[in-house]
Design a binder for these strands. Sequence first.
DNA 1: CGAATACTTGATAGTCCTCAACTCAAGTGG
DNA 2: CCACTTGAGTTGAGGACTATCAAGTATTCG
Lengths: 231, 231
Amino acid sequence: MLHSGEALIRCDPNLVHGERQARPTSTADLVLSSFPTSICKRFRCNTEVFGQGDSAEYLCAVRTGAVRSYKLLEDGRRQIISFCFPGDIFGVEASITHQFSTDAIVDSDIVLVKRSAVDAVAAHDPQFAYKLWIITAKPLNEAQEYLVLLGRKNACERMASFLVDIARRGGLSGNAVELPMSRQDIADYLGLTIETVSRRLSAMAESETVELPSRHRVLLRNLRRLMELNH
Amino acid sequence: MLHSGEALIRCDPNLVHGERQARPTSTADLVLSSFPTSICKRFRCNTEVFGQGDSAEYLCAVRTGAVRSYKLLEDGRRQIISFCFPGDIFGVEASITHQFSTDAIVDSDIVLVKRSAVDAVAAHDPQFAYKLWIITAKPLNEAQEYLVLLGRKNACERMASFLVDIARRGGLSGNAVELPMSRQDIADYLGLTIETVSRRLSAMAESETVELPSRHRVLLRNLRRLMELNH
DNA sequence: CGAATACTTGATAGTCCTCAACTCAAGTGG
DNA sequence: CCACTTGAGTTGAGGACTATCAAGTATTCG
């Protein structure tokens, strides 16, 4: 009963507890890691991997840790585009400059591959070019799913979707979900304010859907109810 | 002064007025059209090209007309993911089934290519595989830009962004923007209700930012103000 | 022309935001 | 060790924006 959550959302049971690490099932990380000229660099918490408008010199993948990609409006409003965890690729651009900024949420190891090198290899290696296409299509579909959340779901549903999604993507250990990001990050991801995020979490705790033992940890107490809210 | 709008948003001045047609600058349409086994099929207004859950057998591109791609929640709420116009590709999936439905907004000619055939060619032709990657990355970036709209912009800004975007993508003739979709479609695209869409358009007409000569036509009277709202 | 559909406008309500005060945890220095 | 500081998060009161419900107008199509 204790681990029913893992079964329900088909989480990899071999996930290392504690610090997030790359899972062997991930494709994006592998494709880039196996690249001859890939380098792996450590980014400290809250440091920038690249900024909006920077030349899109590198393709990136998270090996350990977590990053947030976001866009800023002139008046300071921020929309987080995605959180990336070990195995996820980011920094894919159609244009020659990055359309959003990305920085580390916690100390993270990031795999970097020069885009020019990727382009050169892709032009000669159809298998590789095809893999590139597949790993680009995945975040596209994720972004599209996410549009439904921002366009049509209320605060409660957004919060539930978020928790289930983070759990499914590997943050679940037993019934505990690790949330490395701040409440403000969650708010800017879900298109809400920090107060609304806090209130929704408190309400879920009140109804015994979750438990909040610490700031960066959520225990899923009633996953079924969360999944219902999630649609 | 009459055509200042076109210059301002760098629209192709050779655009054919009236029925939308494929522009020579589009890449996606060309990549698929030049494909040996591509077929072109006519879809009547409001008929389905493919449905959510259907096998993702085909990659598609709009040759003439327009389509909407959308997702439905169980309770009937709808979120339109994107409108596609001549030259735009759609139906790109990471999974073997379509994650959303797509149907024609007006009578449309759609280019269809079997995905199995695309996969086979991509596996041997690096140039083609690379092109596939490029045309997939573009809608990804568009979706990400769109997340900012849904997550952080108010109704007025959403409406302005929408008009500018449609104009930029080829709907502009002189200062007139053609809106082939219904008000309900616009609402479901912008994450608003049909009433709010109607009210925002009326307010823009009141402030002489736009003119509304007919249901499916908007004259941009003060593009500068629209661009300001658009951020 | 009549019917159906699409759209607009108005009144009211509800959700979420804003502003403000407060709590809590972690870190610092005396 | 503890008062102090600082930043993050929570909670409360009130207000703004958009949704909802309802009625009316315009357009389209048979």
